[in-house]
Structure formats: structure tokens, C-alpha cells
Design a protein around this nucleic acid. Structure first.
Lengths: 236, 236
DNA sequence: TCAAAAGTGTTCGATATACACCCATGC
DNA sequence: GCATGGGTGTATATCGAACACTTTTGA
């Protein structure tokens, strides 16, 4: 009876999306000091007395300095052999403690403005943005987690259309928003129809400010107004 | 370092929905022998060497005798005090083993034809269907899990419209399907528009069979054709 | 013949799609 | 003046919502 049931460590792993005006990026951290190619998803074992959501917030805070990031738990990965590759066992021994015989993880999705200054200190070593099509082979099942996160982000936006603005600067052009939608849905979206669609969103408000020093007609800036958005949502 | 990280047992809990032609029901099991009021979600600690999905399938198989039920993981519940109420600790001690200091659970959603004969034996004691509006107070955070499952089932159907048929007999009338949609979306749906909607679904096929011995005009039976459904889905 | 549920069409408004040209700016 | 991206309107198709009466059956 004693050994019949799983008795395990639990981690959180965060797939943090960013957008660089061209494509979606994911925030990866170096697994080992100095090895530039050795990347993984940011994550951590969760503490005694800590809830999983709190652990994910802690990981993200240490990375970005933001206390409450948009966050969505999307799946628990618990294959018995997900942490049993020799190199992964070795890393766990060094990073945490020996004899972690099993490790399950709870995967989170989060969104971050890519211009955000990251904390390149702390336990997470160097971190950086990697375009989703250039994601390298990663330890554990992190590649599978990233793959599943891509569908999840679309479902999240369908469910809460305000979260896309987490990926843009506070002031943005329609063109930036347009490219972001195209990147997320992975298809071309007609720009005229897109303008009309945005015009129906009262929470995307025009600013009296235009681009400067661009070698073409200057675009207008817009901002996302959360108050207006919430007012509309509560009316429904 | 040793005690800094969570080291925990992990369970699965399953919210199994059924439909009785009037309302949604959930399958609950008796927590203790003989106490008819003492109900909880079916669940189990997961085994060493067992994946969470497998554990959920095991729980459901022992309940229903069905090997592969429609199944969807929807959240990990891991509040540090979710299993610390005295009565819950006591039950864990008896059911599993003493000194389970923490327990996190992965919640699953599943669907079952309510006419299905259930296994009222085994470790799950007596089990039965309870209308969702009559769900009693349950141990742990099972009430919260049920609450969250209700939104989840709608999102699941949006994502895969074929799973509603898991809740109906293999032969069903449009009226049954209509009542099911109304129960799931918790609102009235115009019956004429509903007929039109169903007519656009080539995978809902008419049978040459009508109701018999009903004290009103006999309704036609329909069935869900999975092959047609899959063909359409792969074309998109 | 009555009660009870089955089945059936049309109209309207809202929303999504397709499609091409002129505008402003810096170089 | 030209290259570059910004910004705009119209027509059509599709989808969802509103709405009421006739049919069939057993009791």
C-alpha cells in the first residue's frame, strides 16, 4: 500500500508569448549557465504551502518583475517517464535535489509585451525571446507543452478578446494589431474588413498622436481602454 | 532544502455528466458505506507509474464498465488547504493511508448515457445520478470543481460539437436533442430554428423509425453518424 | 374530440467576405 | 517623383433571431 500511490514533486512551466511586430515569440531561459543553446521553459518546483497559480505568478514575477500577469492554466502533464531521460534526471539532481523519482508539471500560458525589460539575473539565468518557428529541442516534454499552447492561446482570445492587448505596446497602430491577429490565427486577414471590425470595438480608442519619422504616411496610435471593455462585458 | 518543495499525492476527480430528458445530472458516489447523503465526485489517487489520463480512465471504467469514455482534463486544483478539513483528513486516513499531508487533484469532465448500467460494486460503493441543481455539499473542493465544470462543458461542445451525442441514447428524437441543448446553454431555444440547425448537420441522420405508443404524434428517431462527422472535420 | 407534443417557412437584421484605389511621408 | 505602408466603401452571402399554425396520435 505504501508505495502504491504516486508521491511526487510538482512543478509549473510557463509558456510566455510575446509579439515582435512580425511573429509570435516564446520566452525561454537557459537551463545551464553559459550554454546559449540549452533552452527550456521557465518554471519551478512549487513550494510547500504554495498554490499552483501562486507558483506560476512567482516564476513570472522573477522573470519580468510584473506582479499579476495575464495567466491561464491549461494542462497538467504527468506522464510517468516525462522526467526520466538521463540528462533531465541529472539536471534535476543539480538544480533541486537528488532522488526526484517523478515530477509532474502544470502548464501555464501567459502574455507579455516583448519590449519589457527582463530580469536576467536570479535562478533563471539568461532569458530571451525565441520565435515560435525557431524553438529548439528542449528538455522534458517542453516541446509538447509549447505545441499544445498554440491552440490554447486562440481559445483564450475567443473567450476573452481583451487579452491580445497584453502583447502590444500601450500605444499601438492598427497595423500592429492586424499583424498580431494574423500571427495568432496564422492566416491573412483582409485589412479593410479588419479596420471595420476594430471600429466596432469601442474599447479600442483613437489617440491624437501619429507615428513620427516614418518613411511613409504616419499611422495613428490607438490604446486599449479596459474600463470601457469591462463595462460592455458586465452589460452582457 | 528537503522540505522546501511540495511532495504530494495526486488524485483525479471526474465530473461525469448525464442527461435525463429534463436536466443535466452528475454522477456521484457515496463516500462512506451506508450513508446515503454522503456524496462526492468519483475519483482516486493516481498510482505510481500511472499517467493522469489513465487514472481518470480507470476511475470511469470501474464506474461504468466503459473502456474509453469521452474525457477532458480541465483543471488542476492545488490549494494547500483543500484537503485539510478534519473530516476530509479523517476520510483520507481510512481510505488510503495516514499522513497524507497534502493532496492535489486533476479534474476531468466526462459524459455518459444516463441509461447506462453502473457498477454499484467495487471501491466506489453505491453511485448515482444527481440533478445539478440538487448537488449536496461535498467534501474537499468538490463543489467548486462542479461549478467550474459547467462552463467547461459549454466550451467543450463549442470546440467539438459531436460530444453532445455521448449524452443521448444511440437513437434519439430532435426533441431530446433540443432539450439537451437548452439544458446545457440554460436558455430557451426556438424549436423551428433548431430544426433548421440540425438539418444543416449531415451527421445527424434520419432513421426510418418512429416512436411507438406515445399519446401524441410519434416523433422520428435520428442517430449520430461519426464517420460523416469525421469526414467533414478532416476536410476543414 | 381533446390533450399533448411533432413538425414546418418566411422575414429581417447583423455579421462576415470579397475586392482596389488614393493618400501621406521621407528619401 | 517614387517607394512604402496607411487608410477607406460597397456589394453580396451567410447566419442567427423572431414569430404561429397544422398534424398526428392515444386516451
Amino acid at each position: 500500500m505504501r508505495t502504491r500511490f504516486i508521491h511526487t514533486y510538482v512543478s509549473v512551466d510557463c509558456v510566455v508569448f510575446g509579439f515582435d511586430d512580425e511573429q509570435l515569440n516564446i520566452l525561454l531561459v537557459q537551463q545551464n549557465e553559459g550554454n546559449l543553446k540549452d533552452l527550456k521553459l521557465p518554471g519551478s518546483l512549487i513550494y510547500d504551502e504554495e498554490n499552483v497559480d501562486d507558483a506560476a505568478n512567482r516564476v513570472l514575477f522573477e522573470l519580468t518583475g510584473i506582479k499579476k500577469m495575464a495567466l491561464r492554466q491549461f494542462r497538467c502533464f504527468a506522464s510517468p517517464d516525462r522526467a526520466s531521460k538521463p540528462e533531465d534526471v541529472k539536471w534535476l539532481n543539480v538544480e533541486y535535489q537528488p532522488d526526484i523519482n517523478r515530477l509532474i508539471t502544470v502548464a501555464y500560458l501567459s502574455l507579455c509585451k516583448i519590449s519589457r525589460k527582463l530580469n536576467n539575473v536570479s535562478k533563471y539565468k539568461k532569458s530571451g525571446w525565441v520565435p515560435i518557428k525557431d524553438i529548439p529541442k528542449m528538455p522534458f516534454d517542453h516541446n509538447q507543452i509549447v505545441e499544445e499552447s498554440l491552440g490554447e492561446i486562440r481559445r483564450w482570445i475567443e473567450y476573452d478578446s481583451s487579452i491580445v492587448f497584453e502583447l502590444l505596446p500601450t500605444k499601438f497602430t492598427i497595423s500592429q494589431l492586424h499583424k498580431l491577429y494574423e500571427a495568432i490565427h496564422n492566416k491573412k486577414i483582409d485589412i479593410r474588413n479588419f479596420h471595420k471590425k476594430i471600429a466596432t470595438m469601442p474599447y479600442v480608442v483613437q489617440l491624437n498622436e501619429m507615428q513620427k519619422n516614418v518613411p511613409h504616411r504616419a499611422a495613428r496610435y490607438y490604446k486599449f481602454d479596459k474600463k470601457i471593455f469591462n463595462k460592455i462585458k458586465t452589460n452582457i
